[in-house]
Design a protein around this nucleic acid. Structure first.
Lengths: 352, 352
DNA sequence: TGGAATTATGTTGACGTCAACAAAAATTTT
DNA sequence: AAAATTTTTGTTGACGTCAACATAATTCCA
């Protein structure tokens, strides 16, 4: 593994100046076919590759984008990463990844690091858009950045998901099935999806005059384990007849909890999930879910960012992408026995 | 978003030389507490961050590692990426990701790109270790690299999985249950796991004197769709009584196929999967699987690579990590009716 | 207190590339 | 064939940092 040849080495071998080599490398005009040949031969002979670091140094552009995600091992994040990777490669960009583990300190580290000149721009799926340190870091950022589904109240380019409609529809779907006691497990308020979805849930329940047991509204970390623990707790004792699990990984934990408690879906419990598109193919019965197209979100983030790099002075942009409720087989009428209050009439359930 | 301050700007403000600033930044000794204070104040005031590109230029080290994976959206790859990300961050490295989509051309592009000085080393989960172009690219690589579970026959640092034992055990597990017609769906021979596992399958069947229907040995791309298609094809008509699905994503497709064909697991078909650790938690019944600790593999790759960076001249290293067969509930005796040839005696099935 | 030893700070140049300008060679024009 | 133009090639310096060396300031000890 010998020293890498530089443009000067090529120049020496080809018996031209380094500038001529540079012209050949960059496909500039005004080089004789003859000279070009000599240079290409020399490059070939030496196995020359332009040094990207030196190029970045000269041009002050790295052709690298940073992507910050809470957890790359999670398939939802993974599909974002894939589309980001693919699109960026097509556009001739490299791609620096940071998996923050939902940890604010780690996130702040990455935000700092990405401002040391290693990336031309960044796409941020933050773990927390409310922490004052994060907000401070965001407000004097020195590199173009696109925020994805977070709203820290700082003027930035953003790609948002619409959460309110879909959650409202989801809750009303359950209500239409006759549910009155509905529980929700959600990611923390420090993330926009959890915030918006919980808000929409509470608001919809309120509008329908349905009481919400505080013990049936849980926000917790976005992991299988926490989803499991929350579901176990909520489903033992005075349990709801329907459960909304609003964050991707948590769905898996909740399903596991339901199985262990020997509850049948949807006979004993209606389960309504969110975001984890693979789950629907795997879990029996297929889950009714609030879904969003993570790949489209990734694409939107990239095109927003690349547009920004192209036109730094353009006005800030916010794109909003929909969430949709996809009905499958995990929701039905509540069980007639058990915790349904006497006197309640189960309304005819709509076709699922 | 103003021009980024340089070390010289800090020097001017602090009324010292740039070298003094450099010393402060890098925590070098021989700086008066007084001067250090002045410099730190100036850095603070200007919001100075050292330019990583210039540092790389100077030191010829980027503190960045490249990771090449077939598909980052896949949870198995994702968990590798996570551990790589975490460990590298701890060690003060950045992390450049390439998701190749199982595409050799893309892979070659990345291999070239990663040799332009943007990374200090790379970890390679190649899509193909047999393609002559890939092998050529690997044999005159100019950056330290660790190959993960690939063996192109080129002397390199490697982290391998042991496949033969686990697959042999898996096949014998099925044989002990009484299966004689066993099918296998596997990733292509261009990847070591597919190669080794198929070999072990065939060898074990041979040793037990069991015939193998060529239509029951399929290798195909490592996707849900291809796993589904292969399973549908194999399970209609003269189907095996047990099916081994040896590549992670394919398992999901196969399960879907089994459900659509209304086959019960394990009553109608024994199913034995591999690698997809999350599947066991999600799929009912829990699948008996050949498993390996992808995080350990990721850790091993990193420590091998970092050791190489530390000691470039050390002898090449190969680490081998185990696969283990974990029995759950998806394998049982073959159905008595149907395709079991007359006269065959089903042997007592061992406790699963 | 003066000179040696130590500590603090500064100056120069190089990493590899390429823009900007400069010079040389080839081509066209008159 | 000399001048003007165009095309090809070359030279210099700067991007930001820091090692190596150089110098200035301080401390130490006889």
């Amino acid at each position: 593994m010998k020293r890498k040849p530089t443009i000067n080495d090529v120049a020496r071998v080809a018996e031209v100046s380094n500038m001529t080599v540079s012209r050949v490398v960059n496909g500039r005009p005004n080089v004789t076919e003859d000279t070009r040949r000599k240079v290409l031969d020399a490059m070939q002979a030496l196995g020359y590759r332009p040094n990207a670091v030196a190029q970045s140094m000269r041009s002050d552009r790295t052709r690298t984008i940073g992507l910050l995600l809470p957890d790359i091992s999670n398939a939802t994040n993974g599909s974002v990463a894939r589309v980001v990777s693919d699109r960026l490669r097509e556009m001739g960009y490299r791609f620096l990844l940071g998996s923050t583990g939902f940890n604010v300190e780690v996130e702040l580290d990455y935000l700092k690091d990405f401002q040391s000149g290693v990336v031309d721009g960044m796409i941020l799926f933050l773990a927390n858009d409310q922490d004052p340190r994060t907000r401070a870091a965001l407000s004097d950022i020195s590199v173009p950045a696109v925020l994805v589904d977070r709203s820290p109240g700082i003027a930035m380019d953003r790609v948002l998901s619409e959460h309110t409609h879909a959650m409202t529809e989801a809750v009303e779907h359950l209500i239409a099935h006759g549910h009155r006691k509905i529980g929700i497990i959600m990611s923390p308020n420090s993330m926009r999806p959890g915030r918006k979805r919980t808000e929409a849930f509470l608001e919809t329940m309120r509008r329908h005059g349905l009481p919400v047991d505080p013990a049936h509204v849980v926000d917790t970390r976005q992991t299988v384990e926490d989803g499991y623990a929350a579901a176990i707790r909520m489903l033992t004792g005075d349990r709801p007849t329907a459960l909304i699990v609003g964050a991707n990984q948590q769905v898996f934990g909740a399903v596991q909890a339901v199985r262990e408690l020997r509850l049948r879906i949807p006979d004993d419990l209606s389960l309504l999930g969110a975001d984890e598109s693979q789950a629907s193919a795997l879990i029996q019965p297929p889950l009714t879910m609030i879904e969003r197209d993570m790949e489209a979100i990734g694409e939107a983030a990239i095109s927003t960012l690349l547009a920004r790099l192209e036109t730094p002075a353009a006005p800030l942009q916010t794109m909003t992408l929909p969430s949709i409720l996809t009905c499958r087989a995990s929701c039905g009428p509540p069980p007639l026995t058990g915790s349904v209050p006497a006197g309640t009439i189960t309304k005819g359930s709509p076709s699922q």
